[in-house]
Amino acid sequence: MGGFVSRGFRSRRRPDAETAERLPPGQYLTRDFPVLSAGPTPRTSLSTWDFSVVGALPEPRRWTWDEFQALPTETVTKDIHCVTKWSKFDTVWEGVSLDTLLAGVETDATHLVAFCDGGYTTNLPLAEVTGGRAWVAFTFDGAPLAPEHGGPARLLVPHLYFWKSAKWVRGLELVERDRPGFWETLGYHNHADPWREQRYQGD
């Protein structure tokens, strides 16, 4: 954590050149981690937690918590951008890449729908979550992911607005036709690229 000097420097109203370059249009930088939830925080015990890949694949895949922890993990440092206009730089996550979870899957699916405890859903094109661009993360800043931030595990898709990084994620449904999720059916953009400022339908 920075001392007085860097704190004063970073809180200046006008972002420095590097910050400006990393901030998508319309965003401001925060050092907090605001909590945005569309429902009560679910409490799922790790003994009943599982993660599954279902839908358009020959055999569903399923991991218990222990099996999931035994998968190869990656630690990544990413900037994240919320549609409510805050961005946070250099967030550190550990998780399992979707490349690992979907490795070798034979599917005609074009999209996936992430499903979560509490009923939340979000949709993503398969082509956008492979190639090292999406993870199921279970630590933040070196500690187990707190429930209010989506623990025990959340999706992490940092190149899209953060509502696509579904909290409390429990699985992925592979679908042959795109199926808009919770916010995507309430006026929010289906794709959600912060660099193109795709906040709302029609943007």
């Binding site: 945005l36 569309a38 009560p40 409510t84 509502w163 309430l186 929010y188 709302y200 339908q201």
Partner: peptide, 25 residues
């Protein structure tokens, strides 16, 4: 529930999102 993204009104008994309203621009 909800916040700046919209208002999510849930059933006190079963948490179903009964009414959802959002302002987008």
């Amino acid at each position: 529930y909800g916040h700046e993204m919209g208002a999510i009104l849930r059933c006190a008994g079963c948490d179903t999102a009964v009414v959802r309203i959002a302002r987008t621009g």
